[in-house]
């Protein structure tokens, strides 16, 4: 614990705190949020900040604070799906390629090259054009787009480990590849996977929010930060900035926090390897 705190530094601990607050807010949104995020009242439009409405209300008279809390849910679930799938499949592909090498490796490399040829958002939009807009489609498509990044990093590190004696000698003893990979290779690349997932989380959050902003991700009336930036656009230009600005800042702060923690973890993954 103390070691972790040292690694993070003061700013890093603040970043961890930010992440904790956002996650807790999302988890306990039903308990904390004072209002239903999707129901508004015409008489309550564009209320300013007050004890009744902490951050005021939007153009439909919905409580912005409640919508931010509920919005944290979809805004966090999406990236969580993306980094989860990316980590699992990226690692699986990388370790398969490294263990078997040869044709398997070059085939998988070709597949990854093909995915690399598409900008992430373009791949996502292609998938949305085929399957229709939803958070699930957006998140799954983005996962596919992210897999090559994760796979490439893990592959290059696992490739270096592959020929070290602690991998080679059990192989010569006839222990099956899957056992060695799981028991020795995987734990050694695990810190890298965690760091990658932390950093990718932020990017996934931005890109999913962008898709929601374009109307291709989370669908109204559900609350989502990217969607709130978009639905508050007209209000912002008319002089009611609360909805857009608060939702946008939530994204900025959360992404910056994940980015900073990831960077600190990256230092650890690199420094933890002396041999």
């Amino acid at each position: 614990m103390k070691q972790f705190a040292e690694r993070m530094g003061a700013l890093g601990l603040i970043a961890c705190g930010v992440i904790a607050v956002v996650v807790l807010g999302a988890l306990f949104a039903p308990l904390i949020a004072p209002y239903d995020p999707t129901i508004g009242s015409v008489t309550q439009r564009y209320q300013g900040m007050s004890f009744e409405h902490l951050f005021g209300t939007d153009q439909a008279g919905r409580d912005i604070f409640s919508r931010l809390l509920w919005g944290a849910r979809s805004s966090l679930t999406g990236p969580l799906i993306v980094v989860g799938i990316t980590a699992v499949f990226g690692t699986l592909i990388a370790l398969t390629a490294v263990w078997w090498g040869g044709i398997v490796d070059s085939f998988l490399s070709r597949v990854l090259d093909l995915l690399f040829a598409f900008p992430n958002l373009l791949l996502a939009m292609l998938a949305i054009a085929v399957f229709g807009p939803s958070l699930t489609t957006a998140a799954l498509a983005l996962s596919v787009a992210y897999i090559p990044y994760s796979a490439r990093v893990v592959r290059s590190m696992a490739m270096r480990e592959r020929n070290l004696p602690y991998i080679r000698s059990p192989e010569l003893q006839g222990i099956p590849g899957i056992v060695i990979t799981g028991r020795h290779l995987l734990p050694n690349v695990a810190p890298l996977i965690v760091t990658g997932a932390t950093i990718n989380f932020g990017f996934a959050m931005i890109e999913l929010a962008a898709l929601s902003f374009l109307g291709l991700g989370v669908q109204p009336p559900e609350a989502d930060w990217g969607l709130m930036v978009s639905s508050g656009q007209q209000s912002l230009l008319n002089g009611y900035p609360a909805e857009s600005v608060l939702a946008g800042l939530s994204i900025v702060i959360t992404v910056a926090a994940f980015g900073y923690v990831g960077e600190r973890l990256g230092g650890r993954a690199a420094a933890g390897r002396k041999a």
Binding site: G202, G226, V229, S244, I251, A256, G259
Partner: peptide
């Protein structure tokens, strides 16, 4: 550190 976290659509608005 903050700049990279600003989504383009938010910066646009």
């Amino acid at each position: 550190n903050l700049g990279f976290a600003i989504p383009t659509f938010f910066a646009a608005l």
